[in-house]
Amino acid sequence: MAKLPITLQFNGGAELLFDNKKLHNVELISEHREWTIGKLLIWIKENLLKERPELFLQDESVRPGILVLVNDVDWELMDTVNYKIQPSDRIVFISTLHGG
């Protein structure tokens, strides 16, 4: 089974839902199907998310107000949940919902 190593980063307060850990280097196991961000979100919920999933996910996407960047590009330019993850991708989630 091929492995798909990627980097995940949670910023802007989103890290509070992940044990206050911002950087996560993970390896996805790519079976036959491709990994999309949509699939990754479910994986994150099952494997990384420590508390209150409703603050991170909503309707099979991220909660409105959480920004997503793939290799420093707005995921809205990359077909959002349908983007096909490539090896060594760096995916950043930034909450805009937390205060100062």
Partner: peptide, 21 residues
């Protein structure tokens, strides 16, 4: 827009702190 403020801070690498009361 809040999205642009956050993106601006991100791309400019400005240091800010987000917290939860």
């Amino acid at each position: 827009y809040e999205k642009e403020i956050v993106m601006y801070a991100y791309f400019k690498k400005l240091v800010y702190f987000s917290t939860e009361c």
